[in-house]
């Protein structure tokens, strides 16, 4: 097995790609829609130009990035690129504690670098208008509702990871494609509700970038994207173990 430093580097690079391209797509959508009159306060600009198609595009930017990272780095580090996934694998005794800590630190660093590189590529509008693609509950969505949405979205993501990858009976070769498309699909529905982060690192990077570069301070919402995804992923891992036991 590759040593922990190199595996952590792979997690860092993978999460960087995820945030740069995924969260970056959300920021670009807001920049494109900037100045347009939105029909209601639930519509903050994403959806102004293409309805749910805007969200599908953002979802696919995440999905393609995830598939690319899983296929390219999956055999090196496991390509979790998501602390919730790493924690769920640790909680079900599939992943060692020491590696879990190193992976999470690497994912948070990678996500932050992804946001900083995106800001460097796209300029100040990416921060002031695009918010670096940071997630926050949409108008009318409460803190509790956002946690629930994040938990359910991440539950589905982790059930899919268990079924198409962790389970030894899973067909080989489909994991990256199916997991990427799952995230894309979840974003279509949950994007305009909770932001559909499903991943504490994916929210951490833009939050830190916004704070460092003069954007909004959104850290009050961070617990949504920590509690929801971690609960959802851990429940899904135990749930899959239970429903697939005694086969």
């Amino acid at each position: 097995m590759t040593n922990l430093t190199k595996r952590a580097a792979a997690e860092c690079i993978g999460t960087l790609f995820l945030v740069y391209f995924g969260a970056g797509a959300a920021a670009v959508t807001l920049m494109i829609a900037n100045g347009a009159e939105t029909p209601n306060r639930f519509n903050i600009g994403i959806g102004e130009l293409g309805g749910l198609g805007d969200w599908l595009a953002i979802g696919l930017a995440f999905g393609f990035a995830i598939a690319a990272v899983i296929y390219s780095l999956g055999r090196i580090s496991g390509a979790h690129i998501n602390p919730a996934v790493t924690i769920a694998l640790w909680a079900t005794k599939r992943f060692p504690a020491q590696d879990t800590v190193a992976y999470i630190v690497a994912q948070l660093i990678g996500a932050s670098l992804g946001s900083l590189f995106f800001a460097a590529s796209a300029g100040m509008d990416a921060i002031t208008i695009g918010g670096l693609g940071a997630t926050a509950p949409f108008p009318g969505i409460s803190y509790g509702q956002a946690i629930l949405a994040e938990a359910i979205g991440t539950f589905i993501l982790m059930i899919v990871i268990m079924g198409v990858a962790v389970d030894k009976k899973a067909p080989a070769g489909f994991a990256g494609l199916v997991i990427g498309l799952t995230v894309a699909g979840v974003i279509v529905t949950l994007g305009n509700i909770s932001g559909s982060s499903l991943n504490p690192a994916r929210t951490f990077g833009p939050y830190l970038g916004d704070l460092l570069l003069g954007g909004s301070n959104l850290w009050g919402y961070f617990p949504i994207y920590l509690i929801g995804p971690v609960i959802g992923a851990v429940c899904a891992a135990f749930c899959y173990d239970w429903i697939s036991s005694g086969e």
Binding site: S77, G78, V85, F95, A175
Partner: peptide, 10 residues
């Protein structure tokens, strides 16, 4: 052995 979501090991 291993491979996504686990690192491959000889």
């Amino acid at each position: 052995e291993g491979g996504y979501p686990f690192p491959e090991r000889k």
